[in-house]
Design a protein around this nucleic acid. Structure first.
Lengths: 195, 195
DNA sequence: CGTGGCATGTAAACGGTTACATGATTTA
DNA sequence: TAAATCATGTAACCGTTTACATGCCACG
């Protein structure tokens, strides 16, 4: 069984472009789906073996060198079918784990400064993210017409932008709100956790 | 070592309200942080034991019944300190795993109808989420003045609302975009994956 | 010749979910 | 007294990350 979603990521990437090694796949993930789906070597290499065993992919046996040299893979028709099958299944997102929100939720147990720092940190990350997304946006637009995947990639980027902008707008408000709260507490002498 | 973030969730909830059993904690999580942080019994009960061993919490030994009856816990001063310490550490979100975005990204490998269905599904979930968030918003507002945590809870809810609204707005656009794409492909007779 | 990047792989450990076992209490 | 729900726990399993081991190759 070529179980587990790692296999589908590999199939998806090989469907877009063949002749990739495990190493290539890792790098391809980093520079694209990595923002919403990460994979490590410890997952990729075993998955490749399983996919070969199920003949969803084939190894391009051209080991020109002697021993351990790059091994490239391509998707088979069976692999494509298997991928399409999975694509059609309703998605199921795993339970989210957002440490930022968790710490914010428990913010009342610490000084307001703690939460403020977290929100500012979050804002900073979101600003960087917006920069990155702008680059991706341009990259996909440039290669647009020749790429059947472009509309889908553009949509994922657009969602990223929309979410990040919303988070950033919220974050700027939140800093203001928390700063007011902090000032109010201090002036009214309310006892609150230090550190 | 009372490692792993499960412990902090427990400490946080017990800091807000003491005398909770493992069962209570599970339910409390479901109805609050559950939207961004889930925990199962398999994590909670072992964590409770570790926390007791480290005396970050204490068991309220009032087993009035004979054998296995509800065991409640409360946070200690040490536990509070440990929680505050963790709250002050910069957050680190684990790599996101968003199956929806993954399937959307690979949308070009299937028929447009597949992606459209996913986006509609996503929109539906977001609409339900907005309804839930509105309820939470009212609940926290009602008990606002007497609760020092209210500002923080309100902020987490507001972020949820902002993100969900942004996603929904995107989703409605996306359905339109993909529907156009579908129509265009069909009329121009471009070959594309079926099913 | 040495360093850094390319490349493949694996073992151990970890965090987490699932499914199951058990039994007490309440309510219909 | 049967069913539902409260309540506690654990063992098995799974997916994943981390750290490590290995070695090729190009370039300065």
């Amino acid at each position: 069984m070529a179980d587990s979603r790692t296999s589908y990521v590999i199939l998806g990437l090989l469907a877009i472009e063949s002749n990739k090694s495990g190493y290539d796949l890792r790098k391809a993930i980093e520079g694209s789906v990595g923002h919403f789906w990460g994979e490590s070597y410890g997952q990729i290499y075993p998955a490749l073996k399983r996919l070969v065993a199920d003949s969803f992919i084939v190894a391009n046996d051209a080991p020109n060198g002697t021993r351990k040299r790059r091994q490239e893979y391509s998707i088979t028709e069976g692999g494509r079918a298997y991928l399409r099958e999975w694509l059609a299944v309703p998605f199921h997102n795993d339970p989210p784990r957002n440490e930022f929100l968790l710490k914010l939720f428990f913010g009342g147990e610490a000084a307001p400064a703690v939460a403020i720092a977290h929100v500012k940190d979050c804002n900073e990350k979101n600003r960087r993210m917006l920069g990155m997304l702008a680059q991706y946006e341009e990259m996909t637009r440039r290669q647009a017409p020749k790429n059947i995947h472009e509309p889908y990639w553009a949509l994922t980027i657009q969602l990223g932008v929309a979410l990040t902008q919303a988070a950033l707008a919220w974050g700027e408000d939140a800093v203001a709100t928390l700063t007011e709260l902090q000032a109010g507490n201090e002036s009214s002498g309310i006892r609150q956790p230090t550190s």
